[in-house]
């Protein structure tokens, strides 16, 4: 039992059981009298027009892509940051070059106007 992830797995199970327990208690205590008006989509009292699942701005996707690139980058940087104190000085510059290359990408996206919302 040296694997700490067993503990994390147990934590996950308990972390789900507690909210489920709360919902079950609520299910037992709460009244349930559904009707069509009550269950209709809430839009401040106005009847819903059209379909509720609407298409969205493509801009969200661009930000998602930029985020993905930086997310992968940080994953590489974590081991670098942990071991940095035990490494020679040029390792610092390697990390800095790594970050600068990525920042160049951000600058390019900025220049191209991809970071504008409208």
């Amino acid at each position: 039992m040296q694997n700490p992830w067993i503990y994390v797995g147990l934590f996950m199970i308990v972390g789900m059981l507690i909210p489920i327990a709360a919902l079950v208690v609520a299910r037992l205590l709460a009244p349930r009298k559904p009707n069509a008006i009550k269950q209709s989509t809430y839009e401040c009292g106005i009847e819903t027009v059209g379909d509720n699942w609407v298409q969205f701005k493509a801009q969200y996707y661009i930000f998602g892509l930029v985020f993905l690139v930086f997310d992968v980058e940080t994953v590489f940087l974590f081991p670098w940051a942990v071991s940095l104190n035990k490494l020679p000085l040029f390792a610092v510059f390697e990390g800095i070059i790594f970050i600068l290359i990525l920042l160049a990408g951000l600058a390019y996206a900025w220049k191209k106007g991809m970071l504008e919302w409208v």
């Binding site: 609520a26 709460a30 009244p31």
Partner: peptide, 23 residues
């Protein structure tokens, strides 16, 4: 109050995902 409030699931909701989200 929260426990004894009626639990409303809107029409057309995806029930399983709807219940999983708060958990």
């Amino acid at each position: 109050k929260l426990l004894i409030k009626e639990d409303i699931t809107p029409i057309g909701a995806d029930v399983i995902l709807f219940n999983l989200a708060p958990i």
